[in-house]
Design a protein around this nucleic acid. Structure first.
Ligand SMILES: [Zn+2]
Ligand SMILES: [Zn+2]
Lengths: 380, 380
DNA sequence: TAATGGGTGCACT
DNA sequence: AAGTGCACCCATT
């Protein structure tokens, strides 16, 4: 069966995956994904794996229940302990905090780190079905890595203060992986100040539906038919941001022209980033403790050029509009209502979003933009 | 609050708990139990612990829901890793295979080793509520050990082939704990040939209701009111043994005079001991593999003196007859019916029985009785 | 290290 | 009776 390759990881800095100890001959090509759909069994034994082509991928992802995304190629890992940091390089920027669920000498199963959501138990990451399975193939003498359930029970937010991320950075430091350290310094910096993280050429589309983005979008599309609410969740998020810019909080104002306004909305977001507010440790000890600052009405809004799209825009623009049109009622009242109950939704979050919840920025932080590398320290 | 002490562990060989590396000044006295009942809270904060006296213990155990049994004193453990083998010395002879559920520097929680019961899921030890909690008291600079839920979801059978027991024996060997090794060699030997294990003076009662046994019986009594079936389970077991002695298997014969006959029943039991039959490893490599032997009608029955009571008799005789009379219908048909469905019972086993399921013995095994210490090897 | 799925002991957090 | 990250296991095919 033919297996065309999708440039999933073009959206990440490829150098990240291709340097230092992970560098080897298998990485002459780019890591790609193959879509593997579970099909009815030939006999009565094992699940068949189909390597779907990009052409039928979109349909398959929407219709079929269980999808496997095969990462290939992967480096030649000397020890299985090298797999986790390699995956973390890919999935931390996706807002996914990986931990090992189970492992032995020939297998490592990864899942989302448990992070109980006190406000909404069903959104706890403890029950998240997302899995990455790495198995060592004896025949091929290499590790196969497959994303098993590309679904999350929660929103995927990058948390630079998580223990896993600290251990990851320590690993990079211990291995003297300078290039990756620099890349994640840059990533943290851009994340903190809500700068675009994906390379501009990846999001170079003007309509949000170029080939690359369409393919990437296929991958992050819902595996099950998305519910109206789950789709609204992504869209109305922008509206919330929009409204908070003018009303600052709990606004019920709305826009009748979402798509236009989203492209020009400001990056600064007054929504609370619970992760940051609950954790004193930020980039370093010399950083002002965000806990002790009242951010209300103290921020200057930075003007943004349309061609430099934010992650938030990227999320929205790359949504499959055909599907959206099937389910979304653009009635404004519906939109605002969904926003108000966002945290209590019981639905699974069907999007593998890079859900960069923008955190508040004060003037001192903005001052440090000029010297990010000094500022961002990789302590621990 | 006064706390009288109950000689729970008189029924075990006390030397077992009081030798070698566990020997220290705190063991000049015998380890005793204090019954701690959870009472309505004084304020609204923590659960109060009541140290009940032996006088009210019997009532409290039957009426109250949650019971804590405090073991005191315990040795001065140099490391927390010493706690588990100390507890194993106590609980292996009780047929309880302990594993650590959770531990840190100041706490160790023990539970029954998970052993999925394929025939009856509710009887799996995986869900057994029995817990032993060891916590280090900073004030007293000693470990406190409390049995938290003296209830099991399964029958407690000693399994000399379990991995935990092998590790336990290895620990004894590594620590050169010769005395304990000898004690458990003796225990294994007596268990294997269904000889009485508890010291005769502990079961010295002629009616089964001496003070000592009465107190011990209080401790192992059901915390919740026992169901009719759970009580019948213990009683009818004797009948099964009785009947198998004559009918060999699946007998529906019964006795109209249980109490009398039990005292004189034979020790040899034809009931299958699944643990032994499923595991080739017994006392040593030179032991005949019991798997490959047909035991049907090939055993000689050993005559037993009434004063040397078996464990099985002990179980029955120490049952609280007042409670039994409340629930048990001595109708013979009922008894035999319960026996036939014994393994499918969904009820919790409310008795902390030393449930020594007797395993088949062949003539060769009986020959080796003369030289048990040669025969019983502590391999691994 | 046949491939593939899951159980669980237990110390870290 | 903390919840969970992780590895040592085992089961099935
Ligand atoms: Zn997840
Ligand atoms: Zn138990």
């Amino acid at each position: 069966m033919e297996s065309k390759e999708l440039n999933l990881f073009d959206c990440l800095s490829w150098d990240l995956l291709n340097n230092n100890e992970f560098q080897d001959s298998t990485l002459q090509q780019k890591t790609t994904i193959r879509n593997i759909s579970k099909q009815p069994k030939n006999r009565r034994s094992k699940k068949d794996k189909l390597f779907s082509t990009p052409d039928n991928l979109s349909d398959a992802l929407v219709k079929d229940q269980n999808k496997l995304i095969h990462l290939d190629p992967v480096p030649i890992f000397r020890e299985r302990s090298e797999i986790k940091p390699w995956l973390q390089k890919i999935f931390f920027p996706q807002g996914i905090d990986l931990v090992i669920e189970r492992s032995d000498s020939s297998k490592v199963i990864f899942k989302c780190k448990a992070n109980p959501n006190r406000t909404c138990k069903s959104e706890s990451t403890s029950r998240c079905p997302f899995r990455i399975r790495a198995t060592f193939s004896i025949k091929l003498q290499k590790w196969n890595i497959v994303v098993v359930n590309n679904i999350h029970s929660h929103k995927c937010k990058f948390n630079p203060n998580s223990e896993e991320y600290k251990k990851f950075k320590k690993y990079l430091k211990d291995n003297n992986d300078i290039d990756t350290i620099k890349l994640f310094e840059e990533f943290e910096y851009k994340f903190k100040f809500n700068l675009p993280i994906f390379k501009p050429n990846v999001i170079k589309c003007d309509c949000g539906l170029t080939k690359e983005i369409s393919l990437f979008n296929n991958i992050v599309l819902p595996i099950n038919k998305p519910s109206k609410e789950s789709l609204l969740l992504t869209k109305t998020k922008k509206i919330t941001k929009k409204s908070t810019l003018t009303n600052n909080s709990n606004s019920t104002s709305h826009s009748n022209n979402n798509k236009i306004k989203i492209k020009t909305e400001n990056f600064i977001d007054f929504n609370t980033n619970a992760n940051l507010l609950n954790n004193n440790q930020s980039f370093g000890d010399d950083v002002t403790n965000l806990n002790e600052i009242d951010f209300t009405n103290m921020f200057k809004l930075e003007e943004k050029e349309p061609e430099s799209l934010s992650i938030e825009n990227f999320e929205f623009e790359t949504s499959n509009n055909d599907i959206l049109s099937e389910f979304i009622d653009f009635n404004d009242d519906d939109n605002t209502k969904t926003v108000s109950t966002e945290s209590e939704l019981n639905d699974l979050s069907y999007f593998l979003n890079v859900d960069l919840v923008n955190d508040p920025v004060n003037m001192k932080d903005l001052d440090s933009i000029a010297t990010p590398n000094e500022f961002i320290e990789f302590g621990l």
